[in-house]
Each structure stands twice: as structure tokens, then as C-alpha cells.
Amino acid sequence: MDELEFMRGRVYGADHDDAGPQPGRAYVELVGGPLDGLLLDVTGLSDHEVRAGVALPTEIGSHGPGGRALYAPRATDSRRFEWRGDTP
């Protein structure tokens, strides 16, 4: 994905009216799973928090409403977080 295409992506958790990436913020791309293709704002997270990955609330995962999608940084590209599964 080139930089221009990356900056056109929708941001996880953003309002639909303001769903694009904002200048001065740091984002990673979510790859696979129910949130595939969305960008995640990681601005302000420590390196340790980023390496640990995230559990993101989603209604479209395998556990339905109340479930979470698990994503962790790709070993070869820290700008992409790969889906690791869903959890209730």
C-alpha cells in the first residue's frame, strides 16, 4: 500500500463524518479479520504497548456484540497489525 492510499483509509473508532487520518497522528493498518483495512491511531502509545498488540471492541467479530478482535504488529512490518483471532 503506498502512502497516498494509506492516508485515504478509514480510522477505527472515528466518527463517520471525520473518519480519515489526521495530520500529526501515527497510524497502523489492521490486516485480516473483521477490521481489515481500517487504520488504528497509535499516537501516544509506548513501544511496549504497541508491541503487546490490541484487543479492539467490535460487533462484527465471531463473538458478536461485546466481542473483541485481537491484533498484533507484523514481525516484518510494524506499520501493519495482523489479526490474531477474536475473544468474547
Score class of each variant (00 low, 15 high):
Glu3Gly: 13
Leu4Ser: 13
Leu4Tyr: 11
Leu4Lys: 13
Phe6Met: 13
Phe6Trp: 14
Phe6Ile: 12
Met7Asn: 12
Arg8Gly: 10
Arg8Trp: 12
Gly9Phe: 06
Arg10Cys: 10
Arg10Thr: 12
Arg10Leu: 11
Arg10Gly: 11
Arg10Gln: 12
Val11Leu: 11
Tyr12Arg: 04
Tyr12Met: 08
Gly13Phe: 13
Gly13Ile: 14
Gly13Cys: 13
Ala14Ile: 04
Asp15Thr: 15
Asp15Pro: 15
Asp15Lys: 15
His16Leu: 11
His16Asn: 08
His16Lys: 09
Asp17Leu: 07
Asp17Ser: 08
Asp18Ala: 08
Asp18Val: 08
Gly20Arg: 08
Pro21Arg: 00
Gln22His: 08
Gln22Gly: 06
Gly24Thr: 12
Gly24Ile: 11
Arg25Gln: 15
Arg25Glu: 15
Arg25Thr: 14
Ala26Pro: 02
Ala26Phe: 09
Val28Pro: 02
Glu29Tyr: 13
Glu29Asp: 13
Leu30Thr: 01
Leu30Glu: 01
Leu30Asn: 01
Val31Cys: 10
Val31Trp: 10
Val31Met: 10
Val31Leu: 09
Gly32Ser: 08
Gly32Gln: 05
Gly33Phe: 05
Gly33Leu: 04
Gly33Ala: 08
Gly33Asn: 04
Leu35Thr: 03
Asp36Lys: 00
Asp36Gly: 02
Asp36Cys: 01
Asp36His: 03
Gly37Gln: 00
Gly37Glu: 01
Leu38Glu: 07
Leu38Gly: 03
Leu39Thr: 11
Leu39Gly: 10
Leu40Thr: 11
Asp41Ser: 10
Asp41Tyr: 12
Val42Ile: 08
Val42Ala: 02
Thr43Gly: 13
Gly44Lys: 03
Gly44Leu: 02
Gly44Ser: 02
Gly44Pro: 03
Leu45Gln: 02
Ser46Glu: 14
His48Met: 13
Glu49Gly: 07
Glu49Asn: 08
Val50Glu: 07
Val50Lys: 09
Arg51Ile: 09
Arg51Met: 11
Ala52Arg: 14
Ala52Val: 11
Ala52Cys: 14
Ala52Ile: 11
Gly53His: 05
Gly53Ser: 07
Val54His: 13
Ala55Gly: 01
Ala55Trp: 00
Thr58Glu: 01
Thr58Lys: 03
Thr58Gly: 02
Glu59Leu: 01
Glu59His: 05
Ile60Ala: 11
Ile60Ser: 10
Ser62Pro: 00
His63Cys: 15
His63Ala: 15
Pro65Tyr: 04
Pro65Cys: 03
Gly67Val: 05
Gly67Met: 07
Arg68Tyr: 10
Leu70Tyr: 11
Arg74Val: 01
Arg74Asn: 04
Ala75His: 03
Thr76Ile: 10
Thr76Tyr: 12
Thr76Trp: 10
Ser78Glu: 04
Ser78His: 02
Ser78Lys: 02
Ser78Trp: 00
Arg79Met: 05
Arg79Asp: 07
